[in-house]
């Protein structure tokens, strides 16, 4: 573990990313304390510029506090990103593991199913799913999961294909170990590093998809999110630049931070890859 940390911290950008990410998580965690009122609560001061009328980052067309929206939205974005990614990794690992381990007809069937999901452009597919299910936080999570898992499935399948013929797996067969145990206890731990890396990058993508959906008005109308604020402020971009700009920067920084951390994890978990550079 300390070895892992040493390798991770050698990458300065990754450490920076981790710090930013921690700040975002911290802000999301204390949103209810610094902005105890409902972020949807409107005031008498619409379109206040940043700093005016006590609004740190200004207010929107009906006087909602942008700073409060960003803080509460951080919680939504991170939660959706995390939950959708966990669900996608779970499904992807199951599909990939069975396809890679059993091969043959099982592999053919599972991979053809995966390909069906991969052929549809993911954002369009996500819009379609949310539109069918009616916008809510659950439907957004489901939509993001459905469009994200095929990448995990393909990765895990590849790893399993490579590992299942390794001699240590054969040794488990000669000991009489069951298939499920071989998959879970023997092979899976050996492909955790690429799964962690792809998972961390998927959190970033999930946040982007969620913001995109909210921007198109397909977010949960009862939950504050970054995409929602931007969507709300886009018609007033020339009058009140701050409404779109600050949540936009929040998305940019968070996604960038997660990507940096993902890269850092990649380097730290695959030390051989790094030496080559």
């Amino acid at each position: 573990m300390s070895d892992f940390w040493k390798r991770f911290s050698r990458n300065r950008q990754a450490v920076l990313g981790l710090i930013i990410l921690c700040v975002v998580i911290f802000v999301a965690a204390i949103a209810n304390f610094i902005f105890p009122t409902d972020p949807f609560l409107y005031s008498k001061f619409p379109l206040s510029a940043p700093g005016e009328n006590g609004f740190l980052l200004g207010s929107d067309s009906i006087g909602r506090d942008v700073a409060s929206g960003i803080a509460h939205g951080a919680k939504t974005s991170l939660l959706i990103g995390l939950i959708a990614t966990l669900a996608a990794v779970f499904i992807g690992v199951i599909f990939g593991a069975f396809a890679g381990y059993y091969g043959g007809i099982v592999d053919d069937i599972l991979m053809r199913i995966t390909e069906v999901f991969q052929t549809i452009p993911s954002f369009v597919f996500a819009i379609l799913l949310v539109a069918i299910m009616k916008p809510s936080i659950e439907s957004v999570v489901i939509a993001i999961t459905v469009v994200s898992w095929p990448a995990v499935a393909r990765l895990v399948r590849g790893e399993f294909l490579g590992l299942k013929n390794r001699e240590f797996v054969q040794a488990c067969h000669t000991l009489g170990m069951s298939d499920v145990r071989i998959m879970l206890a023997e092979i899976l731990p050996n492909c955790l590093s690429p799964i962690i890396v792809i998972g961390s990058l998927m959190v970033a993508t999930a946040i982007l998809i969620e913001s995109g959906l909210a921007f198109l008005g397909l977010g949960d109308p009862n939950v504050m999110s970054w995409g929602f604020i931007i969507s709300d402020g886009r018609s007033m971009l020339r009058v009140a630049w701050w409404i779109c700009t600050f949540p936009g920067i929040a998305i940019l920084i968070t996604v960038l931070a997660i990507n940096l951390v993902g890269e850092g994890l990649n380097d730290a978990l695959n030390p051989r890859l790094r030496e080559r550079n």
């Binding site: 390794r166 001699e167 240590f168 054969q170 040794a171 000991l175 170990m177 023997e186």
Partner: peptide, 27 residues
């Protein structure tokens, strides 16, 4: 069975004690 490649035949993520004892435990 004893395998050819001593680097591929042991699971890198499992401790030696477990590698040896898991056979009898399964049985």
């Amino acid at each position: 069975m004893v395998f050819q490649d001593p680097f591929a035949s042991l699971n890198p993520r499992i401790k030696v004690g477990q590698i040896i004892s898991q056979g009898p435990i399964i049985q």
